[in-house]
Nucleic acid binder design. Structure first.
Lengths: 151, 151
DNA sequence: ATGGTTGCAAATTGTTTGCACAGTA
DNA sequence: TACTGTGCAAACAATTTGCAACCAT
């Protein structure tokens, strides 16, 4: 329920009912999700939405920085809803698949240590895996089906 | 030319001429490569090698820890030849696609900083992007076609 | 001899695209 | 009105799989 119900999710693109439904479904996703999962979610509130449309919307949202691709599960790409602004990374719970944002764990010294390789590091990609507070307590009550695969 | 020309690359699996050719081609790859690229390379020394075989061999090598998947380029998975033993990460040159190994840049303090999220971090995945010494010098002589995409 | 490996072709499947139509700005 | 979004179906491409022959062990 951010005040950004208008233009934010898709950047330039137009705002249609479909897209609004897709944006809302993406916001409601508990953790990382595949396009197919998002499609299913969308169809609950907006039946008849075509898969291609969701793919196109996801592409638009990714371009707008509203969505970020975080690896893949099985054969399909995984996305997480996130804010474009700050530099951050993702913490994926291997128990339930929920995703949390994490500050960049790379300190200055860390980066400096890499200088020894001769490479000029221009960017990096980090995904952390672990157990969220809830899952850490239950500790293997539910089978870890989500977001465990890398890619 | 390691002394591990025998069982190492494929773990359990049997050692056949094809597999030996594939293993050698993988070792000869300069950086990250797709299965298709590896297939082409293999066919130069072992013509007639089927694509499916290469896919199967790659799967076996990945399982054996001989190969590691590092993201994807376009629609296909990228792999790098690497040693299973030590914990390390990859530095991908966005200029030429070559890959170097890098020590884990996550210091103790870095990890500790993440504790604030409540998550119990059990693992992580890091890929660094940058320019290798050669490309850093040339600096945009050749178009950056390789390994720039995440996934 | 036994069981994993290989090629080929067919089958899957995630994702993209063409096109005609609808809806937004 | 002009242009973008949408559905549907066809097109694509990477990867997988079935099967019969083959080859390490």
């Amino acid at each position: 329920m951010d005040a950004c119900e208008n233009h934010s999710h898709f950047g330039e693109g137009r705002v249609t009912a479909r897209r609004r439904a897709i944006a809302r479904a993406a916001d409601a996703m508990p953790g990382a999700f595949t396009v197919d999962e998002l499609s299913s979610a969308v169809r609950e509130s907006a039946p008849g939405t075509g898969t291609a449309t969701v793919y196109r919307a996801v592409a638009a949202m990714e371009a707008a920085g509203t969505l970020e691709r975080v690896g893949a599960r099985d054969g399909s790409a995984l996305y997480v809803r996130c804010h474009a602004d700050a530099h951050h990374h993702h913490l994926v719970c291997t128990g339930c698949g929920s995703v949390a944002h994490a500050e960049c764990p790379l300190g200055e010294e860390s980066v400096r240590a890499l200088a020894g390789t001769g490479f000029t590091v221009t960017g990096h990609e980090i995904t952390l895996y672990g157990l969220c507070p809830a899952c850490a307590t239950e500790h293997r009550t539910n089978p870890p089906t989500l977001a465990t695969r890398k890619d």
